[in-house]
Amino acid sequence: MSSISLKNISKSFKLNNNNPFNKNNNIQKKVLDCINFNISNSEIVGITGPNGSGKTTLLKVISGILIPDKGIVDIQGEISPMLDIGIGFHPELTGRENIILYSSMTGNNTLIETDIEKIRVFSGLSEESFDQKYKTYSSGMRVRVGFSTISFLKPDIVILDEINSVGDINFQKKTYDKIVELANNSKILIIVSHDVDFLKKICTRLIILTNGKVLCDSKPETAAYEYLEYMKENISNEI
């Protein structure tokens, strides 16, 4: 059984003052402000919100990469995050070498050659490009290899950040099927996306984040409606 429980999570960043006209040297930006929620087994949770609302920071806190200033994070289960379209691959290694390194970092059993071949085939990369250094990959290739690796290793908790923003239509279809399959194996899935329709289709629950706070946390349809209303109200501020 895997679960995620967040209690009163707050996180702020100290910013460097690079503006010579501003003498204030202590700029603090509150990115997360009292976040509370629980996620239990076999939930597919979508998270969306405007740019700069703290989505990626929240995912980093859940993944244990960032330590919150306040609050308690309780995670049950092995977790593999995919943040900013990468899962922690080294630019100087090839796709194949990266997958081997990644599986040893996450404590999985050693992958044999056929496993890596399966990952490659699912990613849709040709063998030649797969054995190039990761730094030469396009963002589409990075997402493909990253998602293929995660979906093959099947961690208890899968975190996907902006996965459908760079993959093409065919890969999006494949991802969709794979996400459904992962969810059926009673895993927790957290998907961050700006594509509200995609989230409505795939998620069992939708969390809207604005200015580091949870605006709404409910059924996808209700939350999506509230989010669009919120964005309509705020459009005047942007113009």
Binding site: G64, I65, G86, I87, G88, P91, L101, M105, T106
Partner: peptide
């Protein structure tokens, strides 16, 4: 020189 992996995954 390994910041790419440290920033993405805990190990």
């Amino acid at each position: 020189k390994n910041f790419e992996i440290i920033q993405k995954i805990r190990f």
